[in-house]
Computed example of a mutant assay.
Amino acid sequence: MRVEIWSDIACPWCYIGKARFEKGLAGFAHRDDVEVVHRSFELDPGRAKGEVGPVIPMLAKKYGRTIEEARAMEENVASHAHAEGLGYLAEGRDHGNTFDIHRLLHLAKARGRQGELLDLAYRVNFAEERSVFDAAVLAEIAVLAGLDADEVQAVIGDENAYADEVRADEREAAELGANAVPFFVLDRKYGISGGQPSEVFTRALEQAWQEHTPALAVIAGEGDGGDACGPDGCEVPR
């Protein structure tokens, strides 16, 4: 069974939702049979690549709040992150265009290191005082995730590398009706929007699994049933 997760590294609820999903998955009996695939979604696709700035003034401007109100919003989100055991800096973080990060995540997917890079990118963006929007920092964590340094630099330097893959993910999100992230799609049958509690994910996985591998309905014949053999021997015809 496949679970696809549309998310953006700039989204705090994607960071928190990933942790909650993983806890929900850990409580699912068939977790080893679940393939998790991460898809691209940009929260701020129109933002210029070099336009990087502190997150709190950005939030105040975006939502029409004061700086103090924006700071309180971030502190509230931080409390949810900390409840999941995640590091979170309510202040001192940057916000910027995430297209290059998504392109590198597609490279990481092709090399079997997508999960490792995503975890590092989230941690740097939300829990450390480094900026993941700095090309040097981004290249550093990509190598730490297990990618080849020369290949990473080639992708960062070529704006067309994996661009089509990012755009394809975003088009698919729109086709599925996903206009906010995180957005989880279970076996192309169920969609879950937002960083829901872990038990919601466990129940959804169980329901999707039941439909993915439905139990057979046994049709009995007339009389005592057909002759058959089992561990204790075979039926003797009468």
Score class of each variant (00 low, 15 high):
43 L>F: 07
44 D>N: 13
47 R>T: 11
51 E>Q: 15
52 V>N: 02
53 G>K: 11
53 G>D: 04
53 G>P: 02
54 P>M: 03
55 V>A: 02
55 V>I: 15
58 M>D: 10
59 L>A: 10
60 A>C: 08
64 G>P: 04
64 G>R: 04
67 I>Q: 15
68 E>F: 06
71 R>T: 13
71 R>H: 09
73 M>G: 12
74 E>T: 11
74 E>D: 14
75 E>G: 08
75 E>F: 08
76 N>M: 07
76 N>H: 13
78 A>P: 03
80 H>P: 00
81 A>Q: 05
81 A>R: 00
82 H>Q: 11
84 E>T: 07
86 L>A: 09
86 L>N: 05
88 Y>N: 13
88 Y>Q: 08
89 L>R: 15
89 L>H: 14
90 A>M: 06
90 A>V: 08
90 A>H: 09
91 E>F: 08
92 G>I: 13
92 G>R: 11
95 H>R: 13
96 G>P: 02
99 F>L: 14
102 H>D: 11
102 H>K: 12
103 R>D: 04
103 R>M: 12
103 R>I: 12
104 L>N: 00
104 L>A: 06
105 L>T: 01
106 H>F: 12
107 L>M: 11
107 L>V: 10
107 L>R: 01
108 A>T: 04
108 A>Q: 02
109 K>L: 11
110 A>I: 06
110 A>R: 14
111 R>P: 05
111 R>E: 13
112 G>W: 13
112 G>P: 11
113 R>F: 09
114 Q>W: 10
114 Q>A: 14
114 Q>S: 11
118 L>Q: 07
121 A>L: 08
121 A>V: 11
123 R>P: 02
123 R>H: 15
123 R>L: 14
123 R>G: 07
123 R>C: 09
124 V>Y: 00
127 A>Q: 06
130 R>K: 15
133 F>Y: 14
133 F>I: 05
134 D>I: 07
134 D>W: 03
136 A>S: 10
136 A>G: 06
137 V>M: 13
145 A>P: 02
145 A>D: 01
147 L>V: 05
149 A>T: 07
151 E>K: 09
155 V>K: 00
155 V>A: 03
155 V>P: 00
155 V>Y: 01
157 G>L: 06
159 E>H: 12
160 N>T: 14
160 N>A: 15
161 A>G: 06
165 E>W: 07
166 V>R: 01
166 V>P: 00
167 R>H: 13
170 E>V: 09
173 A>E: 00
173 A>V: 03
174 A>Q: 15
175 E>H: 03
176 L>W: 09
177 G>A: 08
177 G>R: 03
180 A>R: 04
180 A>E: 03
182 P>D: 04
182 P>G: 06
184 F>S: 01
184 F>A: 02
